[in-house]
Structure formats: C-alpha cells, structure tokens
C-alpha cells in the first residue's frame, strides 16, 4: 500500500515498536512535524516530546521520548530514542526523576549550555503536561 510506511521505534535496550503506520507526529528539534508515506528523506534530531503514531488500522499510540533522532525516507521511518516510554503511569515516575536531573544540570550550567539545558527542562515540563 502506498499510503502506509514502516515505522520503527528503537531504544538502545530494545525495539519498542515496529508497525505499519499511516502518519507519525514527531517532536523535531526545529518544531513538530507530521510524517506520512512518500516523505522526502530527512534526518532530524528530536527534543523531548510525544511521538504519536497512527497505525494502518487507525489505532493511535503515543510514546514519550526524551530526545534522540529520526530517520525518514519514502517507505519507512525510524525513531532512535535514548529513553522512550509507552504507558503513562510508569513513564511519569521515570520522567520525574529525569526532570530532576535536568533541572540540576541546568542550574549548574553557564553561558550557552545553560540556555540549552533550560530549554531542555522546559520541553520536558511541556511533555509531562501534554501527557496528562
């Protein structure tokens, strides 16, 4: 079928998802984007946010990711995320710990890295709000 593509979500520890999808919304570092089949080949880094996948059967799944990158071409796309969570409950606890660390790092950072770290924290907070 021309209007679906292969979607893979992999973390360093395991493959979290592999399915046929009609569209996938990802939090690109330059802004959210929705990818559909026949997309131009792009490699983009990700900021913390939700990856929303619409499967070929119309089902919708979201994954929370804390960064990584996505590789997109006409027939397939793969998201490589260092941390990715499926369920809301367990991911919340994990994310909260992660946010704590990020806050601490932001507080210690100086200059340019501070801006980056603070944006990271803001993105994380936004992600957690979006999950509610």
């Amino acid at each position: 079928m021309a209007n679906t593509m292969q979607f893979d979500l992999v973390s360093p520890e395991k493959r979290l998802a592999s399915l046929e999808a009609t569209q996938v919304q990802i939090p690109g570092s330059e802004g959210d984007m929705t990818v559909m089949a026949e997309h131009a080949p792009v490699i983009t880094t990700l900021r913390p946010g939700l990856v929303k996948v619409t499967g070929a059967d119309g089902s919708e799944t979201s994954f929370a990711v804390t960064g990584g990158f996505a590789e997109i071409n006409a027939e397939s796309m793969s998201v490589l995320a260092e941390r990715a969570y499926v369920g809301a409950a367990e991911s919340r606890a994990a994310l909260e710990g992660f946010l704590e660390d990020a806050r601490k790092r932001a507080a210690e950072a100086t200059g340019d890295t501070r801006d980056v770290a603070e944006k990271f924290v803001a993105d994380l907070v936004h992600l957690m709000e979006a999950m509610e």
């Binding site: 080949p41 792009v42 983009t44 880094t45 990158f69 071409n73 006409a74």
Partner: peptide, 14 residues
C-alpha cells in the same frame, strides 16, 4: 549510498 538526506537543524548540528 541510499537517498540523499536533508538534515535538521544542519549536518554539523545533527
């Protein structure tokens, strides 16, 4: 060599 990718934000950035 595969398709030629666009890079976001930039090749160096990625």
């Amino acid at each position: 060599s595969g398709a030629l990718y666009d890079y976001e934000p930039s090749e160096e950035g990625v």
